[in-house]
Amino acid sequence: MPTLATDFSDVTRSEASLRRFLHGLPGVDQVGAEARAAMLGTRSIKTTAKAQALDLAIRMVDLTTLEGADTHGKVRALASKAQRPDPADPTCPQVAAVCVYPDMVATAKETLGASGVHVAAVATAFPSGRAALDVKLADTRDAVEAGADEIDMVIDRGAFLSGRYLQVFEEIVAVREACAKPDGGSAHLKVIFETGELQTYDNVRRASWLAMMAGGHFIKTSTGKVQPAATLPVTMVMLEAVRDFREATGHMVGVKPAGGIRTSKDAIKYLVVVNEVAGADWLVPEWFRFGASTLLNELLMQRTKLTTGRYSGPDYFTLD
């Protein structure tokens, strides 16, 4: 199979050709897109479907801590929780990954061991991305060397908004190369757009194609440090992009909304959008993730409500 860079070599040959391509994508009508997302948000997911959705959502969580105050202790606790989200219920699945800063990767990795829970690291001068490229690449290599399974990079929004698409493209390609592991494998690359700064859905669609063409394995809405973070319509537009990209190339790319998804109800809305816009193929942790921290306990509480038939309270779930 040819690499993607080859498939789109005509497009990415020059700033002009890349610009033509991105601006030639169909526009997104804001009102129509938001209405569609809102309609999907009215889906009523009950009983068996709800139980299925809650477990799936738990399995899709990238349990995240990205604080200046993070410590090894905090990360160890988070990693424990990731493996056993509900210590009282062994049927509760584990989450997809823990997401930390690069200097915490080793600690997370050590705690998680062979659990199958991945370690994701935010790199490339997260969250602003305002650093020289070699600094960003060094940041990435650090995290990969420390054992990160996944790298969450940020795009240079300044370059994107000023129309320097090729620069953004080349940076993603470079970071993806920096994801290479000594064993010949590669950390999975998630490309964060910070959609709250891109402002328009047209930009989100263009950024999506840019990142997919550059070889990103996932496209991700937000750092969680800028408002608005993930929204249902933004995620829908990104899901449309990965769906169309697969139609065009045969390659699947994952989607990760991050930040602002706090309730089970919200999470289920996202799953509905995944189901009805991209399709069931994306309804696996391999292709869809939630970047979240408090969401997990909400999912657990709802899960307990379904199994016990009564509402639970926060004291019955661990705070880590």
């Binding site: 804001q30 009102v31 129509g32 938001e34 402002q199 328009t200």
Partner: peptide, 9 residues
């Protein structure tokens, strides 16, 4: 004749 158009960005 009444014409509708969405207002968005």
């Amino acid at each position: 004749k009444t014409v509708w158009h969405p207002m968005g960005v």
